[in-house]
Design a binder for these strands. Sequence first.
DNA 1: GATAAAATAGATGTCAAGGTCTTTTTATCT
DNA 2: AGATAAAAAGACCTTGACATCTATTTTATC
Lengths: 143, 143
Amino acid sequence: MISQTSEYALRAVVCLAQSPDKPHTTAEIAKLTKVPEHYLSKVLLMLAKHEVVYSKKGLHGGYILAHLPENLPLLNVINAVDPIKHIKSCPLKLKTHGTNLCRLHKRLNDSIDLIEELFQTSTVGTILSDPTTSIPLCESTGK
Amino acid sequence: MISQTSEYALRAVVCLAQSPDKPHTTAEIAKLTKVPEHYLSKVLLMLAKHEVVYSKKGLHGGYILAHLPENLPLLNVINAVDPIKHIKSCPLKLKTHGTNLCRLHKRLNDSIDLIEELFQTSTVGTILSDPTTSIPLCESTGK
DNA sequence: GATAAAATAGATGTCAAGGTCTTTTTATCT
DNA sequence: AGATAAAAAGACCTTGACATCTATTTTATC
Protein backbone atom coordinates (compact mmCIF):
# COMPACT_ATOMS: atom_id res chain seq x y z
CA MET A 1 0.00 0.00 0.00
CA ILE A 2 2.50 2.55 1.20
CA SER A 3 6.10 1.54 0.80
CA GLN A 4 8.42 1.30 3.73
CA THR A 5 10.46 4.12 2.27
CA SER A 6 7.40 6.38 2.09
CA GLU A 7 6.55 5.51 5.65
CA TYR A 8 10.05 6.52 6.70
CA ALA A 9 9.83 9.76 4.75
CA LEU A 10 6.51 10.64 6.36
CA ARG A 11 7.85 9.93 9.81
CA ALA A 12 10.81 12.19 9.19
CA VAL A 13 8.68 15.00 7.85
CA VAL A 14 6.19 14.78 10.70
CA CYS A 15 9.09 14.78 13.10
CA LEU A 16 10.55 17.91 11.56
CA ALA A 17 7.16 19.58 11.52
CA GLN A 18 6.89 19.30 15.27
CA SER A 19 9.77 21.71 15.80
CA PRO A 20 10.01 23.74 12.62
CA ASP A 21 12.37 26.24 14.19
CA LYS A 22 15.63 24.40 14.57
CA PRO A 23 17.47 22.00 12.25
CA HIS A 24 17.64 18.33 13.12
CA THR A 25 20.56 16.13 12.21
CA THR A 26 20.01 12.80 10.52
CA ALA A 27 21.04 11.05 13.71
CA GLU A 28 18.44 12.92 15.75
CA ILE A 29 15.62 12.21 13.33
CA ALA A 30 16.65 8.57 13.11
CA LYS A 31 16.46 8.20 16.84
CA LEU A 32 13.11 9.94 17.20
CA THR A 33 11.46 8.14 14.31
CA LYS A 34 13.19 4.79 14.80
CA VAL A 35 14.30 4.67 11.21
CA PRO A 36 17.67 3.06 10.36
CA GLU A 37 20.04 5.99 10.31
CA HIS A 38 22.02 5.22 7.18
CA TYR A 39 18.92 4.48 5.21
CA LEU A 40 17.27 7.62 6.50
CA SER A 41 20.12 9.70 5.19
CA LYS A 42 19.28 8.50 1.70
CA VAL A 43 15.62 9.21 2.22
CA LEU A 44 16.36 12.72 3.45
CA LEU A 45 18.57 13.25 0.45
CA MET A 46 15.63 12.50 -1.82
CA LEU A 47 13.37 14.76 0.20
CA ALA A 48 15.93 17.56 -0.12
CA LYS A 49 16.25 17.04 -3.88
CA HIS A 50 12.51 17.43 -4.21
CA GLU A 51 12.54 20.47 -1.96
CA VAL A 52 10.34 18.94 0.67
CA VAL A 53 13.01 19.67 3.24
CA TYR A 54 15.86 22.11 3.30
CA SER A 55 19.30 20.99 4.28
CA LYS A 56 21.90 23.08 5.95
CA LYS A 57 25.48 21.89 6.00
CA GLY A 58 28.13 22.48 8.57
CA LEU A 59 28.05 22.90 12.32
CA HIS A 60 24.57 23.40 13.71
CA GLY A 61 23.28 22.24 10.37
CA GLY A 62 20.68 19.65 9.68
CA TYR A 63 17.30 19.40 8.06
CA ILE A 64 14.28 21.65 8.37
CA LEU A 65 10.97 21.62 6.56
CA ALA A 66 10.97 23.62 3.36
CA HIS A 67 7.28 24.45 3.69
CA LEU A 68 4.73 25.22 6.32
CA PRO A 69 3.10 21.97 7.46
CA GLU A 70 -0.30 23.16 6.24
CA ASN A 71 1.15 23.75 2.79
CA LEU A 72 2.76 20.35 2.53
CA PRO A 73 0.48 17.60 1.23
CA LEU A 74 1.43 14.06 2.17
CA LEU A 75 1.47 13.37 -1.54
CA ASN A 76 4.51 15.60 -2.01
CA VAL A 77 6.40 13.58 0.55
CA ILE A 78 5.38 10.27 -0.96
CA ASN A 79 6.07 11.32 -4.52
CA ALA A 80 9.52 12.52 -3.56
CA VAL A 81 10.65 9.09 -2.48
CA ASP A 82 8.33 6.59 -4.14
CA PRO A 83 6.03 8.18 -6.71
CA ILE A 84 2.50 6.93 -7.07
CA LYS A 85 2.27 5.22 -10.44
CA HIS A 86 -0.86 5.51 -12.52
CA ILE A 87 -1.91 2.96 -15.09
CA LYS A 88 -1.43 4.85 -18.30
CA SER A 89 -1.63 2.13 -20.89
CA CYS A 90 -2.84 -1.44 -21.16
CA PRO A 91 -0.69 -3.67 -18.91
CA LEU A 92 -1.33 -6.56 -21.31
CA LYS A 93 0.15 -4.45 -24.08
CA LEU A 94 -2.76 -5.24 -26.33
CA LYS A 95 -2.17 -3.20 -29.45
CA THR A 96 -5.82 -2.43 -30.00
CA HIS A 97 -6.05 -1.01 -26.51
CA GLY A 98 -3.06 1.28 -26.63
CA THR A 99 -3.67 3.98 -24.09
CA ASN A 100 -7.33 3.04 -23.70
CA LEU A 101 -7.66 1.13 -20.48
CA CYS A 102 -10.07 -1.75 -20.30
CA ARG A 103 -12.75 -1.76 -17.65
CA LEU A 104 -10.61 -3.63 -15.16
CA HIS A 105 -7.65 -1.32 -15.39
CA LYS A 106 -9.78 1.77 -15.54
CA ARG A 107 -11.34 0.72 -12.27
CA LEU A 108 -7.98 0.03 -10.71
CA ASN A 109 -6.64 3.34 -11.91
CA ASP A 110 -9.67 5.13 -10.52
CA SER A 111 -8.78 3.87 -7.08
CA ILE A 112 -5.21 5.02 -7.52
CA ASP A 113 -6.56 8.44 -8.45
CA LEU A 114 -8.67 8.44 -5.34
CA ILE A 115 -5.74 7.66 -3.09
CA GLU A 116 -3.67 10.30 -4.77
CA GLU A 117 -6.37 12.87 -4.23
CA LEU A 118 -6.64 11.85 -0.61
CA PHE A 119 -2.93 12.35 -0.07
CA GLN A 120 -3.05 15.60 -1.99
CA THR A 121 -5.70 17.14 0.22
CA SER A 122 -4.23 15.77 3.42
CA THR A 123 -1.31 17.83 4.62
CA VAL A 124 1.27 17.42 7.30
CA GLY A 125 -0.54 20.24 9.03
CA THR A 126 -3.83 18.36 9.17
CA ILE A 127 -2.04 15.44 10.77
CA LEU A 128 -0.48 17.61 13.42
CA SER A 129 -3.72 19.38 14.24
CA ASP A 130 -5.92 16.31 14.43
CA PRO A 131 -7.06 16.32 18.06
CA THR A 132 -8.59 12.86 18.11
CA THR A 133 -5.44 10.79 18.54
CA SER A 134 -2.10 10.81 20.22
CA ILE A 135 0.78 13.02 19.17
CA PRO A 136 2.62 11.59 16.18
CA LEU A 137 5.60 9.38 16.89
CA CYS A 138 5.84 10.44 20.53
CA GLU A 139 5.96 8.37 23.63
CA SER A 140 2.75 9.71 25.10
CA THR A 141 -0.92 9.36 24.47
CA GLY A 142 -1.33 13.07 23.94
CA LYS A 143 -4.80 12.98 25.41
CA MET B 1 -0.46 -0.02 -4.87
CA ILE B 2 -1.88 -3.27 -6.18
CA SER B 3 0.64 -6.08 -6.28
CA GLN B 4 1.49 -7.85 -9.47
CA THR B 5 0.00 -11.00 -8.04
CA SER B 6 -3.31 -9.26 -7.33
CA GLU B 7 -3.34 -7.87 -10.83
CA TYR B 8 -2.86 -11.38 -12.20
CA ALA B 9 -5.62 -12.75 -9.99
CA LEU B 10 -8.02 -10.05 -11.11
CA ARG B 11 -7.23 -10.71 -14.75
CA ALA B 12 -7.88 -14.41 -14.28
CA VAL B 13 -11.16 -13.84 -12.50
CA VAL B 14 -12.40 -11.32 -15.05
CA CYS B 15 -11.42 -13.77 -17.75
CA LEU B 16 -13.39 -16.58 -16.14
CA ALA B 17 -16.35 -14.30 -15.59
CA GLN B 18 -16.66 -13.73 -19.30
CA SER B 19 -17.61 -17.34 -19.94
CA PRO B 20 -18.93 -18.68 -16.64
CA ASP B 21 -20.31 -21.83 -18.23
CA LYS B 22 -17.27 -23.90 -19.11
CA PRO B 23 -14.05 -24.60 -17.21
CA HIS B 24 -10.84 -23.03 -18.40
CA THR B 25 -7.46 -24.66 -17.99
CA THR B 26 -4.54 -22.77 -16.55
CA ALA B 27 -2.94 -22.71 -19.97
CA GLU B 28 -5.99 -21.13 -21.56
CA ILE B 29 -6.30 -18.45 -18.92
CA ALA B 30 -2.59 -17.76 -19.10
CA LYS B 31 -2.79 -17.19 -22.83
CA LEU B 32 -5.85 -14.94 -22.65
CA THR B 33 -4.60 -12.85 -19.76
CA LYS B 34 -0.90 -12.86 -20.71
CA VAL B 35 0.12 -14.05 -17.29
CA PRO B 36 3.13 -16.40 -16.95
CA GLU B 37 1.54 -19.83 -16.96
CA HIS B 38 3.40 -21.49 -14.11
CA TYR B 39 3.00 -18.53 -11.88
CA LEU B 40 -0.66 -18.30 -12.72
CA SER B 41 -1.12 -21.87 -11.53
CA LYS B 42 -0.01 -20.76 -8.09
CA VAL B 43 -2.31 -17.79 -8.15
CA LEU B 44 -5.26 -19.96 -9.18
CA LEU B 45 -4.41 -22.34 -6.40
CA MET B 46 -4.75 -19.56 -3.88
CA LEU B 47 -7.99 -18.41 -5.44
CA ALA B 48 -9.30 -21.95 -5.16
CA LYS B 49 -8.23 -22.27 -1.54
CA HIS B 50 -10.19 -19.13 -0.75
CA GLU B 51 -13.15 -20.36 -2.75
CA VAL B 52 -13.08 -17.56 -5.22
CA VAL B 53 -12.85 -20.12 -8.00
CA TYR B 54 -13.74 -23.76 -8.17
CA SER B 55 -11.26 -26.24 -9.58
CA LYS B 56 -12.00 -29.48 -11.32
CA LYS B 57 -9.23 -31.97 -11.85
CA GLY B 58 -8.79 -34.46 -14.62
CA LEU B 59 -9.75 -34.47 -18.25
CA HIS B 60 -12.07 -31.61 -19.21
CA GLY B 61 -11.27 -30.05 -15.90
CA GLY B 62 -10.15 -26.53 -15.21
CA TYR B 63 -11.28 -23.51 -13.26
CA ILE B 64 -14.65 -21.83 -13.06
CA LEU B 65 -15.88 -18.95 -10.93
CA ALA B 66 -17.28 -20.04 -7.61
CA HIS B 67 -19.67 -17.09 -7.46
CA LEU B 68 -21.78 -14.97 -9.71
CA PRO B 69 -19.72 -11.99 -10.90
CA GLU B 70 -22.13 -9.57 -9.24
CA ASN B 71 -21.62 -11.35 -5.94
CA LEU B 72 -17.85 -11.28 -6.13
CA PRO B 73 -16.22 -8.10 -4.80
CA LEU B 74 -12.77 -7.32 -6.11
CA LEU B 75 -11.69 -7.31 -2.50
CA ASN B 76 -12.30 -11.03 -2.22
CA VAL B 77 -9.99 -11.66 -5.12
CA ILE B 78 -7.30 -9.38 -3.76
CA ASN B 79 -7.51 -10.70 -0.25
CA ALA B 80 -7.21 -14.26 -1.50
CA VAL B 81 -3.77 -13.70 -2.97
CA ASP B 82 -2.34 -10.66 -1.25
CA PRO B 83 -4.42 -9.50 1.70
CA ILE B 84 -4.77 -5.82 2.35
CA LYS B 85 -2.93 -5.13 5.58
CA HIS B 86 -4.26 -2.63 8.02
CA ILE B 87 -2.09 -0.81 10.49
CA LYS B 88 -3.19 -2.32 13.75
CA SER B 89 -0.53 -1.17 16.14
CA CYS B 90 2.17 1.45 16.30
CA PRO B 91 4.83 0.68 13.64
CA LEU B 92 7.41 2.32 15.89
CA LYS B 93 6.51 -0.16 18.59
CA LEU B 94 6.24 2.60 21.14
CA LYS B 95 5.05 0.93 24.28
CA THR B 96 2.82 3.79 25.34
CA HIS B 97 1.02 3.64 22.03
CA GLY B 98 0.31 -0.05 21.93
CA THR B 99 -2.70 -0.45 19.68
CA ASN B 100 -3.44 3.28 19.69
CA LEU B 101 -2.28 4.69 16.41
CA CYS B 102 -0.75 8.12 16.32
CA ARG B 103 -2.21 10.72 13.99
CA LEU B 104 0.09 9.83 11.14
CA HIS B 105 -0.68 6.16 11.18
CA LYS B 106 -4.33 6.70 11.81
CA ARG B 107 -4.46 8.81 8.69
CA LEU B 108 -2.59 6.23 6.67
CA ASN B 109 -4.84 3.50 7.94
CA ASP B 110 -7.91 5.55 7.09
CA SER B 111 -6.83 5.59 3.48
CA ILE B 112 -6.29 1.85 3.55
CA ASP B 113 -9.82 1.50 4.90
CA LEU B 114 -11.11 3.63 2.09
CA ILE B 115 -9.44 1.53 -0.56
CA GLU B 116 -10.73 -1.61 1.06
CA GLU B 117 -14.25 -0.26 1.03
CA LEU B 118 -13.90 0.68 -2.59
CA PHE B 119 -12.83 -2.82 -3.53
CA GLN B 120 -15.54 -4.27 -1.36
CA THR B 121 -18.33 -2.43 -3.11
CA SER B 122 -16.87 -2.92 -6.57
CA THR B 123 -17.59 -6.37 -7.93
CA VAL B 124 -16.44 -8.33 -10.92
CA GLY B 125 -19.96 -7.84 -12.21
CA THR B 126 -19.70 -4.07 -12.11
CA ILE B 127 -16.53 -4.25 -14.15
CA LEU B 128 -18.10 -6.45 -16.78
CA SER B 129 -21.19 -4.29 -17.09
CA ASP B 130 -19.42 -0.94 -17.26
CA PRO B 131 -20.34 0.33 -20.70
CA THR B 132 -17.92 3.25 -20.83
CA THR B 133 -14.78 1.38 -21.80
CA SER B 134 -13.56 -1.53 -23.83
CA ILE B 135 -14.17 -5.14 -22.97
CA PRO B 136 -11.71 -6.33 -20.32
CA LEU B 137 -8.53 -7.98 -21.53
CA CYS B 138 -9.83 -8.44 -25.05
CA GLU B 139 -8.31 -7.42 -28.36
CA SER B 140 -11.09 -5.07 -29.37
CA THR B 141 -12.33 -1.68 -28.39
CA GLY B 142 -15.75 -2.98 -27.50
CA LYS B 143 -17.33 0.27 -28.49
C1' DG C 1 42.37 25.99 11.39
C1' DA C 2 39.37 22.64 13.73
C1' DT C 3 35.07 20.74 13.75
C1' DA C 4 30.45 19.11 12.62
C1' DA C 5 27.36 18.36 9.61
C1' DA C 6 25.35 17.05 4.88
C1' DA C 7 26.57 15.26 0.14
C1' DT C 8 28.29 11.75 -2.59
C1' DA C 9 29.76 7.31 -3.83
C1' DG C 10 29.98 2.57 -3.70
C1' DA C 11 30.28 -2.18 -1.92
C1' DT C 12 27.73 -5.50 0.20
C1' DG C 13 24.02 -8.05 2.50
C1' DT C 14 19.12 -9.70 3.23
C1' DC C 15 14.68 -10.96 2.14
C1' DA C 16 10.25 -11.35 -0.05
C1' DA C 17 7.90 -11.17 -4.49
C1' DG C 18 7.82 -12.88 -8.68
C1' DG C 19 8.84 -16.49 -11.84
C1' DT C 20 10.34 -21.30 -13.74
C1' DC C 21 10.48 -26.20 -13.76
C1' DT C 22 9.52 -30.98 -12.43
C1' DT C 23 6.96 -34.47 -10.15
C1' DT C 24 2.75 -36.21 -8.00
C1' DT C 25 -2.13 -36.76 -7.62
C1' DT C 26 -6.71 -37.09 -9.41
C1' DA C 27 -10.53 -37.43 -12.61
C1' DT C 28 -12.11 -38.80 -17.14
C1' DC C 29 -12.14 -41.26 -21.32
C1' DT C 30 -11.65 -45.38 -24.15
C1' DA D 1 -7.34 -51.34 -16.57
C1' DG D 2 -4.60 -48.14 -18.96
C1' DA D 3 -3.89 -43.68 -21.19
C1' DT D 4 -4.49 -39.07 -20.80
C1' DA D 5 -5.30 -34.36 -19.22
C1' DA D 6 -5.69 -31.59 -15.81
C1' DA D 7 -4.75 -29.51 -11.01
C1' DA D 8 -1.65 -29.81 -6.89
C1' DA D 9 2.62 -29.63 -4.82
C1' DG D 10 7.06 -28.35 -4.15
C1' DA D 11 11.97 -27.39 -5.37
C1' DC D 12 14.55 -23.87 -7.12
C1' DC D 13 16.04 -19.45 -9.27
C1' DT D 14 16.01 -14.23 -10.12
C1' DT D 15 15.29 -9.60 -9.09
C1' DG D 16 14.51 -5.43 -6.78
C1' DA D 17 13.40 -3.06 -2.41
C1' DC D 18 15.31 -2.36 1.77
C1' DA D 19 19.22 -1.93 4.62
C1' DT D 20 24.15 -1.59 6.35
C1' DC D 21 28.65 0.07 6.25
C1' DT D 22 32.67 2.66 4.92
C1' DA D 23 35.08 6.34 3.01
C1' DT D 24 35.70 10.74 0.99
C1' DT D 25 34.29 15.42 -0.19
C1' DT D 26 32.05 19.72 0.56
C1' DT D 27 30.35 23.39 3.33
C1' DA D 28 29.26 26.24 7.29
C1' DT D 29 30.39 27.53 11.95
C1' DC D 30 33.22 28.24 15.87
